[in-house]
């Protein structure tokens, strides 16, 4: 299958401190790929590097084209959108304003309105709270809002940073259910950073394991789930 995203020898640094040391990574068109690793392995940095949020070197191709020199804003317009660690909620804005902000790179007013209603369909709780201040919502609701906000831009590739962090199992299940639906029905590709490796490997087809800024292991989700390394280090059994 052709790749929507292909990174070769991706390196990144904060100031002059290198954090990624040459990562090769591929997300197939319409695929879900998991990015696993311990705290500080460089998962978030990888996503930020792909979106040009940190100093980056290497060759990244998105939809077959090199994206060297593109700004975050350009990439968002091209459909590469992050659901950030910590959710990036616009806390002093209403739920609905958050969704409108998600669609900031679009111009089709009618389409935006329709998509807002569509998001309320996926996440009914957001519909009930549309006029509420987003910062006053629970963690789970804010995570749903973060995903809905990203979807409002009509992304082709979602970069998800630990969507399950700090949420109750039932909510996590709901969120992952919606993510797989969106992947299947709308063909949105996903690069999924997760601590919860079991769950990530259930929805992903392929996975990478990062260790201190390098790919330590990669393979199909089944291969990684069966790997002793992954089991011992990250699954805990």
């Amino acid at each position: 299958m052709s790749a929507i995203l292909e990174a070769v020898n991706l390196r990144a640094a904060y100031g002059d401190r290198p954090v990624l040391f040459g990562i090769d990574l591929r997300v197939p068109e319409r695929g879900i790929v998991a990015l696993l690793g311990a705290n500080g392995a460089g998962k978030t940095t990888t996503l930020r590097a792909l979106l040009a949020e940190v100093r980056t070197w290497g060759d990244v191709r998105y939809q077959g084209e090199s994206i060297a020199g593109k700004s975050t804003q350009d990439l968002v317009r091209m459909g590469m959108v992050m659901v950030p660690e910590g959710r990036g909620t616009f806390t002093d804005f209403t739920v609905e304003e958050n969704l409108l902000l998600g669609a900031y790179s679009r111009r089709d007013k009618d389409g935006i309105r329709r998509d807002i209603e569509r998001m309320y369909g996926y996440f009914p709780v957001l519909g009930q709270r549309r006029k509420q201040r987003a910062g006053s919502m629970s963690g789970g609701e804010q995570q749903m809002l973060a995903i809905a906000r990203a979807l409002m831009s009509r992304p082709k590739l979602l970069l998800l940073d630990e969507p399950s962090l700090g949420l109750a199992p039932l909510i996590v299940q709901e969120i992952f259910g919606i993510l797989t639906t969106i992947n299947r029905e709308e063909g949105v590709s996903m690069l999924l950073v997760e601590q919860d490796a079991v769950r990530a490997l259930k929805v992903a087809t392929y996975a990478y394991l990062l260790e201190t800024g390098r790919v330590a292991l990669e393979g199909t989700a089944d291969q990684l789930a069966a790997s002793d390394d992954v089991r011992r280090a990250y699954l805990g059994y």
Partner: peptide, 18 residues
Amino acid sequence: LGLRAAAAQPASSRLVGI
């Protein structure tokens, strides 16, 4: 909306393409 968002939360604003 963009002016207010950029003022309140620049990092999140960049991520929505502002």
